[in-house]
Amino acid sequence: MTVTSVIVRLIGEESWRKCRNYKTKTTAFLFEIGVKIILIQFVGVSKVYNNGIKALQNIDLKINRGEFIFLVGQSGAGKTTFMKMIIRRELPSKGQIFIGRNCLNKMKEKEVPVFRRNIGFIFQDFKLLSNKTVFENVAFALEVIEATKTEIQKQVPQVLDLVGLKNKEKLFPSELSGGEQQRVSLARAIVNRPLILLADEPTGNLDPDTAWGLMDLLLEINKRGTTIIMATHNKAVVDQLQRRVIALEEGKIVRDEAKGVYEV
């Protein structure tokens, strides 16, 4: 057993099992020097919706900080549900979920907003506000968490620059192409520097070229340390990038490979 694995056991897994805090700075340092740190852990998680549908069944899973994960599976396999549980939009019917130093089952309702500020999301349908400009749409995410004007003025242009929309900040979503709209929603998702980015079929409405443009951005963001979980039906992207692939079928994990492909 190596030294690093011992450390991980001490500060990672064990402390999450007990739902105890551990020092963020320490983990950031360990992450920098290449130690694997568990960021998301599902322990025997099942989700049964009120209508009796079993969306997830007995999921056991660990996701390390900095990973890029493809979530594949047919419609209705439970991909969206899986992401909703990470953002605590839904609570597990059984089992436990740990995100960073939080135990979602035990989290108090009033802790949820602050918790969610660590997680960004993008969706297939962008979910932009049509009456706000590009700049305002991105600034919105900072405004509602009561960031100062200075912070907004500094961070929004920065992130718009990153997604390549610097010169379009005064336009409204209806004046943009699908790819550009998705990049606005990506800018909004990452503007408050989340630890985790959830992307639910983000390329679903984009043509192949635009989709690759978005993938490049996601890879770049991932390189900067953000853990990304992306649900997708885009076979080309999954097969080419060779990242960890988790396949769901009727709410169960049927495959989990470090360098996977879309289908076996």
């Binding site: 953002i87 907003p113 969610r116 500020r117 999301f121 979910k127 506000l129 995410a141 509602v144 968490i145």
Partner: peptide, 15 residues
């Protein structure tokens, strides 16, 4: 829609 996005990016209920 706005409310949904606000909730997802972590606005408090009172906000």
């Amino acid at each position: 829609k706005e409310i949904e996005i606000m909730k997802l990016v972590g606005a408090t209920d009172w906000f």
